[in-house]
Design a protein around this nucleic acid. Structure first.
Lengths: 205, 205
DNA sequence: CTGATTTCTTGATTTAAATCAAGAGCGCCC
DNA sequence: GGGCGCTCTTGATTTAAATCAAGAAATCAG
């Protein structure tokens, strides 16, 4: 959903409670029982490579946490695909405006590989606030954090060249580069595959 | 703080309750007494043209609603100013990450004209949630809305030319074009003043 | 009102990045 | 294992936008 993700691979090994750990990590202090209440609303949900998690124009009726796999968020603009973001393990994935405001989804979200998700329905999601005191505040802080990450991303387009954006993103997301078609990363950084390839060559040698 | 603003000039004439109207407008349904509780925490705050509302690196200890005037949010990057946003009447202005997470401010915020603000201190702001039931939920929705606006802005950098960004922004913010130095708008749209000037010429004639 | 900044425009030139075009590498499936 | 469809690379060329350089307009201060 945005550029915020747990960055503690060691947590990912504790399969049992990855979701709980993540909620803890993202949303901060919460009573153990509340943590359990929240995570129990999520259900294991597997999707195969190529399957659409969401199609633009539809209503997004779920929020998912990625345990494994990669999903691409993109639009079709004048026949061209524009990749907005690639979500990887540790991210939440949804169309926030559609989930929250019941507007038609703006994004296509498609699995780039077989994915293992924890998914909560829109109805259950909208109910968390009633079950867990303080939930809205935690979620507010989470979304605010996502907001500031997007601010930075905008700033990168105002102040950096394609090469600088490449270097900045590569430094923070090395692992993505050998897991997804590079053209998608190129698009996400606002450049063509050709430009991406040339910059990449420079940075390898 | 982002691209979300009331767009009902008729409301601005009702001076008495502009702030309340705006809170109502932004944050949705609220009991009249809660609305009053919130708005009473804001205090009139005038700043002169050129004065800094915030300097980057400092802590942002307030949140303001703009009744009148314009403020520019920018950074200094390698000796160059990069304008992130221009806030106008109807907007809230703050450094969200500094306000919420007590990090050093990332932005400089400077008055482009004499400004008339309603300001709430960080302490009072952080207390609203205790005074007004449901506040965090409303604020969450507000920030989520801001988030989706930034998503769109990023998308515009991935999919549009400088000229398209100009046209898109102009359509929605005509009034800004004769109120602020155009170089700031140029920077905000990610182009040089020269490019901006040439595009503008085309669109005028 | 006037001189001094600041802001904007315009033209010439350069540069970064896009586009066009072709080929290479590689996984995949029958 | 050979052919087919992606994906990536590389080179040649074009183009959008940046940079450089002056002037013109507008704004501001005294």
């Amino acid at each position: 959903m945005c550029g915020l993700r747990i960055d503690k691979p060691e947590l990912r090994r504790i399969t049992m409670s990855l979701l709980e750990q993540s909620i803890h990590n993202y949303f901060g202090l919460m009573q153990a029982q509340d943590l359990h209440t929240v995570s129990s609303l999520f259900h294991v949900h597997e999707i195969k490579k190529g399957v659409f998690f969401l199609k633009s124009g539809k209503s997004c009726d779920k929020l998912s946490f990625i345990q494994n796999g990669l999903l691409r968020i993109y639009t079709l603009q004048d026949g061209k695909e524009v990749t907005q973001w690639i979500s990887s393990p540790g991210y939440f994935v949804t169309d926030l405006s559609s989930l929250m405001f019941d507007t038609p989804a703006r994004w296509n979200i498609q699995a780039l590989s077989d994915c293992s998700l924890y998914t909560i329905s829109k109805a259950d999601y909208k109910n968390i606030g009633k079950l867990v005191p303080g939930w809205h505040e935690l979620e507010k802080l989470f979304i605010a954090k996502c907001f500031t990450i997007l601010e930075d991303r905008i700033h990168s387009h105002l102040s950096m060249s394609a090469e600088e954006r490449y270097a900045y993103f590569f430094e923070r997301n090395k692992e993505l580069f050998n897991q997804v078609p590079l053209q998608y990363i190129a698009s996400m950084l606002g450049m063509t595959p050709e430009t991406f390839s040339r910059i990449r060559k420079k940075h390898i040698s």
